[in-house]
């Protein structure tokens, strides 16, 4: 019988403490981000999908088609192609395809790059139902950006 009454007293106390805390929290400001109305700002180091960096003067990609990113990628989602124009010593980037369906955003490609040619974008609204939306042509993307 004494157990019963101690349970009743302890239960009532737990209830009062619980209600006290929850009521106090009820009048505190809302902490959730009201997403579609307020868009979060990504931090500078946010790892989105990669994009090409253009040369500041010419606007052409910094990429020299060395293929390091392609080799570093654990999921082989990068395809790079380039060609040597006549009379030029350097290769010129013609194709940079990122298959984002396979990408796990590890950033190995950005780390492996020695020519400051790729960086992380801050895009995160990437939901889609079509596979084609995730095959990014980064050369085209750079042209559109400049």
């Amino acid at each position: 019988m004494s157990d019963y009454w101690s349970d009743v007293i302890n239960g009532t106390r737990s209830l009062v403490i619980g209600m006290n805390i929850t009521v106090r929290e009820l009048f505190k400001p809302v902490i959730t981000e009201q997403y579609p109305h307020f868009v979060p700002v990504m931090t500078p180091r946010f790892r989105g999908h990669i994009e090409l960096i253009g040369n500041e003067e010419t606007g052409l990609p910094n990429c020299v088609v060395c293929g390091m990113c392609q080799r570093a990628c654990p999921s082989s989602c990068i395809t790079v192609a380039g060609e040597k124009p006549e009379g030029s010593k350097k290769k010129v980037l013609t194709k940079y395809i990122l298959d984002f369906t396979k990408c796990s955003l590890c950033g190995s490609c950005v780390e492996s790059c020695n020519f400051n040619a790729i960086k992380f974008s801050h895009d995160y609204n990437l939901a889609s139902t079509r596979k084609e939306d995730y095959i990014f042509d980064l050369v085209k993307r750079l042209e559109e950006q400049s």
Binding site: E25, I31, T43, R45, F46, R47, S104, C106, G107, F120
Partner: peptide, 24 residues
């Protein structure tokens, strides 16, 4: 309440690591 506090850690770690859950 726990997620409120956890969110603060995720924000801190996101600032330095670049991701919120599967940090590498």
């Amino acid at each position: 309440y726990a997620f409120d506090d956890r969110e603060k850690i995720l924000d801190l770690l996101e600032r330095i690591t670049g991701s919120r859950l599967t940090y590498c």
